[in-house]
Design a protein around this nucleic acid. Structure first.
Lengths: 188, 188
DNA sequence: CGGAGTTTTGATCCTCGTCAATCCGCGTGG
DNA sequence: CCACGCGGATTGACGAGGATCAAAACTCCG
């Protein structure tokens, strides 16, 4: 656990290596994962003296931690940093809005297809084909997509049966029919 | 319509008076409203040369429009503006994440209760009691909460039967049991 | 092997979506 | 003034997608 929802927001972080999930909880334990972060991403930018979500490393991770008081100084020293962070934040907002569309209006199959294509895109930017790794467990995927573990599992099985994907050892997935998945993602 | 998703993002706006809804669409017409804006709010801050969503005025509205090229100049002229906008953007992101929790994990009743309490809070900041106005139609509420019109209507009726709210002429609502609604909002 | 955690699969249930009818408020025009 | 029509809201009947509950199968390590 890097920090918890409600903690005083004394630091901000940059993820150097590894993967992190950030989530919010309802009092009875229902969880919504609001993002998966990879190397290069920032944590704790949006704040209001306490963190708005909990951040946990999924596996081993390396973070760069900046005290918020020093951060103010950094902004002054490095012109252009503020603009850059603003852009980062804007992109996050855009991503968040896409996710709202997904959570509010997409079916389970569409949600999974969107998720897989998202990961594929991330992976291919670092030079991959249709092969990708799922660093998170099913429960994480479910809580990210607003589904249950069972539905995630069933939908993946169906994709497998339909020949859209292939499951490989080591939690890796091969997207065999990206065209079909892309259609599903778009939502018709 | 102020601008559409996909339009080149030549301007940014500040809403002076009235109410605006912003939404995203799936190709088959399913709609997700990602926000309702009131006087003082900004539109088009987050961008990537095209707008990420469609913005429509709900009723008569007044907007202040700034050409994006001039906006860059404004930032240079007014130090502190960038920081202020950054804060605005941060808050929007936080709100967006709350909405993800709502869309992904809350039940219909919890969604409605959250929505009503949100509006009540907005209204009470401008000095109101438990009385609030719904400037938007049922379909808008449904598309904001990831529900259907029918479910919204049924849930409102149930709240009415249960004595949590009272419907008044002119699309106004009186929250008679804010305590119960607040419990529902929190989610248990 | 053994055993815990995770994933898959099956059976059943229930919330919410769909389809359809009715109702209500309101403006229009005969 | 009242009949009509229209968009929005409500209500009802029904069905489906996904949740829930339960059990089996797989993985990974010790």
């Amino acid at each position: 656990v890097i920090f918890r929802e409600g903690d005083p927001a004394g630091f901000l972080f940059n993820l150097v290596a590894g993967a992190v999930r950030i989530h919010k909880l309802l009092p009875d334990g229902r969880r919504q994962i609001v993002g998966f972060l990879v190397a290069g991403d920032f944590l704790g930018l949006a704040y209001n003296d306490t963190y708005g979500y909990t951040a946990e490393a999924i596996g081993p991770a390396r973070l760069c931690r900046v005290r918020r008081t020093e951060y103010e100084g950094l902004l002054a020293e490095l012109p252009g940093l503020e603009k850059r962070l603003f852009t980062v934040e804007s992109n996050e907002l855009t991503v968040a809005q896409d996710q709202m569309l997904l959570l509010g209006r997409k079916t389970a199959k569409e949600k999974l297809a969107t998720f897989l294509m998202q990961l594929a895109e991330r992976a291919s930017r670092h030079g991959g084909d249709g092969m990708l790794e799922l660093p998170m467990v099913r429960a994480d995927i479910a809580d990210y997509l607003g589904l249950t573990v069972e539905t995630v599992s069933r939908t993946i099985s169906q994709f497998k049966r339909d020949g859209l994907i292939r499951l490989l050892p080591d939690n890796r997935v091969q997207l065999t029919r990206r065209d079909v998945l892309d259609h599903l993602r778009a939502g018709d």
